[in-house]
Structure formats: structure tokens, C-alpha cells
Design a protein around this nucleic acid. Structure first.
Length: 694
RNA sequence: GGGCACUUAGCUCAGCGGUAGAGCGCUGCAUUCACAUUGCAGAUGUCGGGGGUUCAAAUCCCUCAGUGCCCACCA
């Protein structure tokens, strides 16, 4: 054995050996233990957050496999609709092109090819992180079998009256050219201006003067005495001198602006609701391209909203209708992806009625059918469900699963199928049908991932492994994913998709700052594994904090764990050299003393606490326990004591070491496996398939 | 405005009812011995402030202060 452990020499070879040995596939017997991997987006390299989930999930997977359970860790890849199209469009832009230069089929094919390349890249990175998942069962969210299931769910929802097509005010990104769900809108605070305008009989305050041409009313609070006499009278929109009714509605809060609100149903969510209550006209003056349209006065048409705002304000001022303008900190919705301001626009979309899905999803958690490992996330989950609105599942992009809905050219009715092209309109029998060009929200398909995967891998998998044991994922997608999986899983299969939810925190830089490209504090997991070895990175990612908490990751910690890997290597080296010496002297002659009994007792204690910690998902504690035992008890104390009576203690040392390697294996799979094979323990040719000590 | 957390050694974090812990960093010493990617020894904290419960509180309760994250239609 070399003097120091060289991870580069062993990792790839060991991984190949594991994979070829069939150890990643579930055994025929044993209690089923299934984890579905959160499928990484197939559009980029893995980042440090992926490395953390691999470290956590693989540790649990290896532990349960060693306990003799039938373990299935099912890997996958996500087509990640918006994300991927966004990334791809950036590439196109670098080449001086845009999505509008291609027809739908060509664009789809180009993204497909791009994704396939990234997908295999991503898979290799998971391998290099040591993920012991069953590649023979890998699924991609656009696999035809998966798509069929997604279609079927949509049809079922539709047949049950839980899907409707509605003209609603949606969060529209004029840059991305698609509507989003409420969850995909970020809110940023920035300085804007609020303008007080003279509406003749009343003054109103607004931050969006460019939309005055779409006003349908002016609203005041029903309890507002100062305006009570005006309700039912008319106000006059300046510049165009159109009269609108003054109405009263409880949505108007008092103490804001002039206490009078211009109601623009087509361009504001509050106003939309007021409009519904009062049956107001929905006048649109902003188009999907973000430019002003008719019926705004001609001079503003074609302007982007920002320019139009300036122009309108200037004209209002000239007309003497601008009473006041002042700076104001305000919160605006921006596209979570491109950060452009979200434009609320009326648009026909497919919605899922969430009410009937929310109740079972709440009950499942309240009745502990699904248990959150960290209670705080259960509270957050329930809070989310209580405040959920109907889910817009249609996106105006090409990259994704096209919605199986056809519109009749004759009667205008929609025909929904489970994927197949309908022969005729379900309403009038017309033959002239056109398919909706929209695609599903990515989360609509990934929300079905646990059952969609298991129903399409091997016969019997679903019956055997569903509900899965644990869903492990990051907290930032709790509402997007965990919540939707529970709702859709319960709806389609009648059972929760997973029994436990283990949520992990974010990886931050060593000062605890959020990692971002713009800050330049990105930690590249592949660079770290190259430099210090996968085991070191993984141990550092588990060691630093409770699974559920954010973790500050310093390179020093990774280096420290590399040193630990080297310590493991050298303990083994010591034992090998002792073996050789024994052989030369005619074999070990076992004779136990107090030191042996002490280390055996310490080992037993360690086995107990590490096992308990793993059962409770306290991976940091478990890792620290083994570390303490191996380095500071076995190496620093026992090994030193043994030096004087090597031959008598050798058998016990080998036995203790074999058990210690097992405890370490979930956290540092490579070096422990190399060492296990080096020492040729008889129990099992590979450590990955050895038995967890008890 | 609503929700969820956090505040413990210089830094990053564990501990969550029984007289303070780890890693890194720091100080000193050692070292041809499995490992300098090392060993041994050591310093550093009225566990955010205040109140309460208890024989006993970093740990439970209340309160104040600060920090972070998520949500939200204040025009």
C-alpha cells in the first residue's frame, strides 16, 4: 500500500465494480426500502446542492442496503421546461439567434438534443459522486411511458371536473412569453413612483398611470364617509375624458393613497376580483409583448409599458391632471427566471381546481401517513396548503409535454384525451380539430414522479415499493414539488407517495452567504472531488450541520475530511503490515486483555449510537460518532497500545476494523471499500454488500 | 401584514432538564516508529438581555432586542 491514499487511483474503478456486481439493484428478499431521487435538471452540471443530496441520500441508501433491506434508489432526469428553455435560449442568443428563428418542431428537436447530451453528462457526475442508485430503472420525465401517465392524470382530473379552462388574470412574463403559476413569481422591493391623479370628482393614486385607459371604475371603501356621497356618481378618466362609475368595495383599504382606487380589472389582481364582484368590463391595453394596445390613444400604442408610463405622466402633467408624484418603496412581481417584471394579463389557461386535492394532502400529514423528519417543515407545508389557489398548469413554451387538448373549429369546444388524437369533436362531432400548443407546467409532471416512475420501471415495482419510504429534497421546492406530489399521488393512487419527508437545507459559502454566480462564491463539487476525493466532500457535506439546516461549507472542512480518509487508509496500512509480520512469524496468537475489551466496548457503543442516529436522520451526529471512534479511540489510543503486543491483538484489531469500516461506509464509500478489499475480509468480497453490525 | 427559524469558544456549527462540546483556527512540545494529509499537551465561553417554572435550565415557559428565510393584492 502507498503511504497516502490517492482517491484518483481508485474511485472510478470501485464505482464500476459496484455497478457491475449488481449491488445497486434491489435484492429479491427483504423489507422494501425505496427512495426516488429528485431528478436533477438535464440542462447543466451538478452543483454543490446536488452533492449534498447525494451525500445524504446515498448514506441512507447504503445503510439500509447493509441492513439487508430490498433497497431501490431510483434515479432520474427532469426535462425542466422553463428552466431548460431559458438556458437554451441563452445559448441561442450567444449565437445571435432567438427562439423565434425556428418553428416549433425544430426548436423542440434542438432542445431535445441539447438535453440528451447534458443528461448523460449529469449521470456521469452522479456516478462520480458515488451515488449507488439503480441505473437500470432510470427514468426521464419525457419518456413516452411517463408522458402517457401524465396525460391520463390530466384526463382523469378533467373527467372529475377538477380541470377547467378559464380566462383568468395570469402572471405573464413578456420576455419569456409564457404565463406562470403564482409560485413562480418572485417579489422584489424597489423604488417606484406613486402618482395622484385628478379624476374630476375624485382623486386617485396609482403606480401604473399607463393603464388608466383600461379603467372600468373607481372604487372606495364602503365605510369611507368622505366618499359615501360620491358612490354611484361618475369620475372622469383624464386624457380621454371617459366617465367611469364610482363603486364601493371592501377590497379597498383605507389609509392608502387617497383612499380611492382606480379599478383596472385586466391589469391587476385586486381589480380583477373587484371587477368580478361588480361585473365590470375587462379592458386590455397591454399586449403579450408588453406593449400598449388599443383602446389606448394612438400615440401610446406600441410603446413598452415603461415608456408609456413616462409619456402618460408627462401628458397628465401638461393637462394639469397630475396632482402629486412621489417616490415610494414598492413590491413588484418579477419572473422568477429572468427577473423581468410580471405583467398581469387576462389569458385563457388550463387550471387545476386545488380545493379537493388540498384536503386529503392535509389530512395525510395530520394523520401521520406522511411524516416530516423536521417538524418545522410540517408547519410550513400545512400553511402552504391553507393558502393555495387554483393551479395554472399551462405554459406557452414548446419544451415540455404538450397538453392533450383539441379545440373544435366548428363549435369551439375542447376535447381532452389521454394522449391519442381524437377523431372528432366530443361536443358537435366536428372534424376540424386543432391541438393546443401549450405545454404542461413541469411541476405537473414531476408532481406525479413517485408513481409515474414505479409504474413504468419493472412489473411489480409499484406494488412492492409504493408508497416509498423517504422523500429527500431541498426546502426551496417544498411547495412546488413535495406538496404537489402529495396531492397528485393521493389523487391518482389513493395512497401517499412517501411515508417520510426529509428536507435538507442549502449549502452556503464559508461565511454562510448564499452561493451565487454573481457573488463569485460558487463551490464546484466536481473540482472538490478532484482535489480532495469524493469521500472527503461527502463527509464534509454531512458533517457540518443538521440535515434540515443550511450549512456553511469551507474548503478547510473538506481538506480536514481528506485527512480523515488518509487516516483510514493508514490504519489499514498498519494492519496489513502487521499481517505480513505475523505471517513471517508464523501467525497471530490471540490473547485478549483490557485494551481489547475496552475498544470492543467502545465499538459496541458506537454501533448503537450511529444506528440510532441514522434511524433518526441525524447524519451529522452519526458521522461525528464514527469519526471520533475511528480517529481518536481506535487510532490514537488502541493502535498505540497494541504496538507492544501486536500478534496477540491482531485478530481483535481486524475484527474491530471490519466493523468500523461498515459504520463508515455510508459516509465515505470509496476509501472504505478500497480498504475492505485490500484487507480481504472473508464476510463479503465487497463492503457495499456487507452486513450492518448490530 | 402573515408564517418559519436562528442568536453557544476567533470562525462554522452540535448539544435541547443534571455543574459547557466538535471541526477549523490559535499556542507550546514531540517525531527516522501506519499516517506531517501526524501525535501529545494547552488557552479561549456569566450558552443574545430580562423575568418565570424546577432541587436543578444553554436545554421548558413568558418577554424584549437583533438576524435570516419564506409568503402577501397596500393602488
Amino acid at each position: 500500500m502507498d503511504k497516502a491514499y490517492d482517491h484518483k487511483k481508485y474511485e472510478a474503478e470501485i464505482y464500476k465494480k459496484w455497478e457491475e456486481s449488481g449491488a445497486f439493484a434491489p435484492s429479491e428478499t427483504g423489507k422494501p426500502y425505496c427512495m426516488i431521487m429528485p431528478p436533477p435538471n438535464a440542462n447543466d452540471d451538478l452543483h454543490i446542492g446536488h452533492a449534498r443530496f447525494v451525500a445524504i441520500e446515498d448514506a441512507l441508501i447504503r445503510y439500509h442496503r447493509m441492513k439487508g433491506e430490498a433497497v431501490l434508489w431510483l434515479p432520474g432526469a427532469d426535462h425542466a421546461g422553463i428552466e431548460t428553455q431559458f438556458v437554451f435560449e441563452k445559448k441561442l442568443k450567444e449565437q445571435g439567434k432567438s427562439r423565434f428563428d425556428f418553428d416549433r418542431e425544430t426548436l423542440y428537436q434542438m432542445i431535445w438534443d441539447y438535453v440528451q447530451k447534458n443528461k448523460s453528462n449529469m449521470e456521469n457526475q452522479l456516478r462520480s459522486l458515488g451515488a449507488s442508485c439503480d441505473w437500470s430503472r432510470e427514468r426521464f420525465t419525457l419518456d413516452p411511458e411517463i408522458v402517457r401517465i401524465v396525460y391520463r392524470t390530466f384526463k382523469k382530473l378533467h373527467d372529475d371536473g377538477l380541470v377547467y379552462r378559464g380566462e383568468r388574470l395570469v402572471n405573464y412574463c413578456t420576455r419569456c412569453g409564457t404565463a406562470y403559476s403564482e409560485l413562480e413569481v418572485d417579489h422584489v422591493e424597489k423604488e417606484g413612483e406613486i402618482y395622484t391623479l385628478d379624476y374630476g370628482s375624485i382623486k386617485i393614486a396609482t403606480t401604473r398611470p399607463e393603464t388608466i385607459f383600461a379603467d372600468a371604475a373607481v372604487a372606495v371603501n364602503p365605510n369611507d364617509k368622505k366618499y359615501a356621497a360620491l358612490v354611484g356618481k361618475k369620475a372622469t378618466i383624464p386624457l380621454i375624458n371617459r366617465g367611469v362609475l364610482i363603486i364601493s368595495d371592501e377590497a379597498v383599504e383605507m389609509g392608502v393613497g387617497t383612499d380611492a382606487l382606480k379599478v383596472t380589472p385586466a391589469h391587476d389582481f385586486t381589480d380583477w376580483e373587484i371587477g368580478e364582484r361588480h361585473n365590470l368590463e375587462r379592458i386590455t391595453v397591454v399586449g403579450r409583448d408588453g406593449r400598449i394596445t388599443v383602446p389606448a390613444p394612438e400615440k401610446y400604442r406600441g410603446m413598452y409599458v415603461n415608456e408609456a408610463r413616462k409619456a402618460v405622466v408627462a401628458d397628465l402633467e401638461a393637462a394639469g391632471k397630475l396632482v402629486k408624484r412621489e417616490k415610494k418603496q414598492m413590491v413588484t412581481g418579477v419572473c422568477y427566471r429572468c427577473k423581468n417584471p410580471i405583467e398581469p394579463l387576462p389569458s385563457p389557461q388550463w387550471f387545476v381546481k386545488v380545493g379537493p386535492l388540498v384536503e386529503p394532502a392535509k389530512r395525510a400529514v395530520e394523520e401521520k401517513k406522511t411524516v416530516f423528519a423536521a417538524e418545522k417543515f410540517e408547519k410550513i407545508y400545512l400553511h402552504w396548503l391553507d393558502n393555495l389557489r387554483d393551479w395554472n398548469i399551462s405554459r406557452q413554451i414548446v419544451w415540455g409535454i404538450q397538453i392533450p387538448a383539441w379545440k373544435c373549429g366548428k363549435c369551439g369546444e375542447w376535447t381532452i384525451t389521454a394522449g391519442e388524437t381524437p377523431g372528432e369533436c366530443g361536443g358537435c362531432g366536428g372534424k376540424n380539430l386543432t391541438r393546443d400548443t401549450d405545454t404542461f407546467d413541469t411541476w405537473f409532471s414531476s408532481g406525479q414522479w413517485p408513481f409515474a416512475t414505479l409504474q413504468t420501471t419493472q412489473p411489480g415495482d409499484f406494488e412492492r415499493f409504493y408508497p416509498t419510504a423517504v422523500m429527500e429534497t431541498a426546502y426551496d421546492i417544498l411547495p412546488f414539488w413535495v406538496m404537489r406530489m402529495t396531492m397528485l399521488g393521493l389523487y391518482v393512487t389513493g395512497k401517499v407517495p412517501f411515508e417520510k419527508v426529509l428536507i435538507h437545507g442549502l449549502v452556503r459559502d464559508k461565511q454562510g452567504q448564499k452561493i451565487s454566480k454573481s457573488k463569485g462564491n460558487v463551490i464546484n463539487p466536481l473540482e472538490m472531488t478532484e482535489k480532495y476525493g469524493t469521500d472527503a466532500l461527502r463527509m464534509a457535506l454531512v458533517w457540518g450541520a443538521l440535515v434540515e439546516n443550511d450549512m456553511a461549507l469551507a474548503e478547510d472542512n473538506i481538506r480536514g475530511q481528506r485527512n480523515f480518509a488518509n487516516k483510514i487508509w493508514n490504519i489499514a496500512r498498519f494492519i496489513v503490515m502487521a499481517d505480513e509480520a505475523d505471517k513471517a512469524e508464523g501467525g497471530a496468537k490471540t490473547e485478549m486483555n483490557d485494551d481489547d475489551e475496552w475498544i470492543n466496548k467502545e465499538l459496541k457503543k458506537t454501533v448503537k449510537t450511529v444506528t440510532e442516529d441514522l434511524e433518526q436522520f441525524r447524519l451529522n451526529e452519526a458521522a461525528a460518532e464514527v469519526y471520533e471512534f475511528v480517529w481518536h479511540k481506535l487510532a490514537d489510543v488502541y493502535l498505540e497500545k497494541v504496538k507492544g503486543r501486536r500478534a496477540e491483538a491482531q485478530d481483535n484489531l481486524r475484527r474491530v476494523w471490519a466493523e468500523a469500516l461498515k459504520l463508515l461506509h455510508p459516509f465515505m464509500p470509496f476509501v472504505t471499500e478500497v480498504v475492505w478489499q485490500e484487507l480481504k475480509f472473508g464476510e463479503s468480497p465487497t463492503l457495499i454488500s456487507a452486513h450492518w453490525p448490530s
